[in-house]
Amino acid sequence: MLAGLAGAFVAATFALIVAEPYVDAAIAFEARHAAHAGGVELVSRATQKTLGLYTAMMLYGTALGGLLAIVVAACHGRVGAIPPRALAVLLAALACVVLVLAPALKYPPTPPAVGLHETVRLRTGAFLGMLAGSLLAALAGAWAAQRLGAVLTRLDRWLAGGLVYLAAVALVAALLPHVDEVPADFPASLLWQYRVAAIAGQMIFWLVTAELFGRLAQPLLAPRVSR
């Protein structure tokens, strides 16, 4: 959990420096075009992108750091002779694919001024459905790889598990509703830069958390060598 807290701090700092300027630019675009521009802010932007950003990210990171530790402990010794540090980084890389990239391909991150207020519930539910579907598809791929262990080599069965994941996640994406609410006059470069920064921030969180956790867990989980 401490590793997740540290990873979230690094990711929040990255977001503050890299992603928040794009959010400010999107808010400025919305203020110029929205009919309700000029309304009173319930929470100031200065608070949102400092205290609010760090509070939310660090709570999120602490929880996911604990979950990463549980998954590493469950997999340690059961997926081959992989050292704890390497296992943590491998699982973090898988989390980047399953929990970040796959949902973002169907429902990419969007800054303010993109998306209608009337469809917030639909978009939130669809994104959570894609996230859950990607996680279940990954579990199905892992199960398939394990079941094929008796007839295929290790590489072949993990390739087969990867194909099962891709097929299942593609099916989930096809069944979920399509959402495209980007205004025609919204700057394409701003949208692209925000999405890259948002995804990069998530990857930074996972990799920093896994690396720090792996370094701390390695001496505890690795077998001790007798003199």
Rank of each mutant, 00 (worst) to 15 (best):
L5V: 12
S134I: 01
P84S: 13
G38C: 04
A167G: 13
E181D: 10
V151C: 09
V120D: 04
R85A: 14
L5I: 11
K106H: 15
K49V: 12
P83E: 12
R123H: 02
L148H: 06
W192Y: 12
A160G: 07
A26T: 03
A167S: 13
I70D: 08
V18T: 13
L59F: 15
Y107L: 14
P108I: 09
L131I: 05
A188E: 13
V97P: 02
V98A: 07
W158N: 09
V179P: 03
Q146C: 09
F29M: 00
L191E: 11
I17A: 15
A37H: 08
A74C: 03
P219K: 10
E211Q: 11
A95K: 00
S44C: 04
R147G: 00
G39M: 02
P111L: 02
A137M: 08
Q193C: 08
A15N: 13
R215Y: 00
R85Y: 00
W206A: 11
E20A: 11
A140H: 06
A95H: 02
L152T: 00
L159F: 11
A28K: 03
V114R: 07
R45W: 11
P183C: 02
A46S: 13
V43Y: 03
E20G: 04
R123V: 05
A137Y: 07
P84I: 03
A142L: 13
A168H: 05
R121T: 15
A63G: 04
A138M: 07
A81C: 01
V18A: 11
L105K: 05
L99Q: 15
L131C: 07
V196E: 07
H178I: 05
F205D: 05
P83D: 13
E30A: 14
A12P: 11
L51S: 08
L90Y: 02
V23D: 01
L91S: 09
I199E: 14
L94W: 13
R227A: 15
A217Y: 10
W206G: 09
G129W: 11
A126K: 07
L105H: 12
A144L: 01
R215G: 14
L220C: 04
F14D: 02
W192G: 00
R215V: 10
I27M: 13
Q218A: 11
T119R: 15
K49Q: 15
Q193L: 13
G162N: 03
Q202P: 03
L42A: 05
L128C: 00
